[in-house]
C-alpha cells in the first residue's frame, strides 16, 4: 500500500526583509515579500527522500495561509511533491498556534496520512511547537527535531540532538515528525520540476469544508494576545578601531574599562 505523506509548510515573510507588525499587532504580511519558510524546505526534502526509499509513496504539501501562500505550495511541488492542499479563509487572520494546529489536524485527516512531516520551526513565529501540538491533536506519536530520519517496516526512526544528549528515537506509523536544518540540504527545483508543478493539483479548502467553527480561529479565537510591540532601539554607535598592530591591546583596555577583566 502506498505511503501517504503530508508535509506542512508555512508561507512566511522573508527574514532578510524589514519585518514589522500591522496595526492589530499581527505580522504585517504586506510589508515584506513572502516565501516558503526555508526551514520547511528541509521537511519537503526529507519527505522526498523517504518517498524515494519507499516502494510507493504519495506526498501532499499542506499550508494554512493567505492567497499568496500558493507560492509556497508551488515551490514544494516543483521540488517534487505530488499534490497540494491550501486552506484559506478570511476568518483565519491572526490565528494562534492552537487554531492553526486545529486546522492542520483537520486538513491532514481530510487528506489521509501515514506520516506528517514538519519543519523544526517557522522562521517568523519561531515557536517550534506546532508539530508536538499536531501529534497531540491527531493522537499519534511525535518524533520531532530530527537531524536524521528514516522510515521502514511501518516504523519511523531518527536522531534527535538535544541540549544534554543525542537520542535515537523510534515510533510506529502513523506519526508526526519534524526535521531540523541539520537533516541535509534541500534540493533546488529543476526546470522540469518547475514546469511539472504547474500541472499538479492544488485543492483549496475553507473552514466550512473542514467543519471548523470560525470562533475557534482568528485573532478573537486566539488564547493569547500581544499588547505591545516596540522596535528595539538601534544600538548606539560603538567605537570602531582599525588594527594597526595594537588592536588586541585596545580591545583589552575596553574590556577592562567595562570591568570584564
Amino acid at each position: 500500500m502506498s505511503l501517504r505523506i503530508v508535509v506542512c509548510v508555512k508561507y512566511v515573510p522573508d527574514a532578510t526583509g524589514d519585518r514589522h507588525f500591522a496595526e492589530d499587532l499581527t505580522t504585517d504580511r504586506d510589508a515584506v515579500d513572502g516565501l516558503l519558510s526555508e526551514l520547511d524546505e528541509y521537511a519537503v526534502e526529507q519527505a522526498l527522500q523517504i518517498a524515494d526509499a519507499a516502494d510507493d509513496a504519495e506526498i501532499t504539501v499542506l499550508t494554512v495561509g493567505p492567497e499568496d501562500a500558493k507560492d509556497a505550495l508551488r515551490k514544494a511541488l516543483s521540488m517534487g511533491a505530488h499534490k497540494a492542499i491550501h486552506v484559506e479563509d478570511d476568518a483565519l487572520h491572526g490565528t494562534d498556534v492552537f487554531g492553526t494546529s486545529l486546522v492542520l489536524a483537520k486538513a491532514v485527516e481530510h487528506a489521509g496520512f501515514d506520516l506528517v512531516v514538519c519543519g523544526m520551526a517557522s522562521t517568523d513565529g519561531t515557536m517550534g511547537v506546532l508539530p508536538a501540538i499536531l501529534a497531540e491533536r491527531l493522537g499519534v506519536p511525535q518524533v520531532t527535531q530530527l537531524s536524521e530520519v528514516s522510515v521502514a517496516d511501518g516504523k519511523v526512526t531518527g536522531r534527535r540532538d538535544g541540549d544534554a544528549a543525542s537520542e535515537q528515537l523510534e515510533a510506529s506509523l502513523p506519526a508526526v515528525i519534524s526535521v531540523t536544518d541539520q537533516s541535509g540540504e534541500a534540493r533546488y527545483p529543476s526546470f522540469k520540476g518547475i514546469m511539472a508543478a504547474k500541472k499538479k493539483p492544488v485543492e483549496s479548502l475553507d473552514l466550512s469544508d473542514l467543519d471548523i467553527d470560525e470562533a475557534t480561529v482568528g485573532l478573537s479565537g486566539s488564547w493569547s494576545t500581544v499588547d505591545e510591540a516596540t522596535q528595539r532601539p538601534a544600538r548606539t554607535a560603538g567605537t570602531i578601531v582599525k588594527d594597526e598592530g595594537e588592536g588586541g591591546k585596545q580591545l583589552a583596555a575596553f574590556l577592562a574599562e567595562q570591568k570584564f577583566i
Partner: peptide, 19 residues
C-alpha cells in the same frame, strides 16, 4: 559592526591572540 559597542577591523589571527 552595526551592533557593536566596540569593534576592531583587523585580522582575527593577529587581534585575538594579542587580546
Amino acid at each position: 559592526f552595526d551592533l557593536v559597542d566596540y569593534g576592531v577591523v583587523g585580522d582575527l589571527f593577529q587581534v585575538v591572540p594579542q587580546l
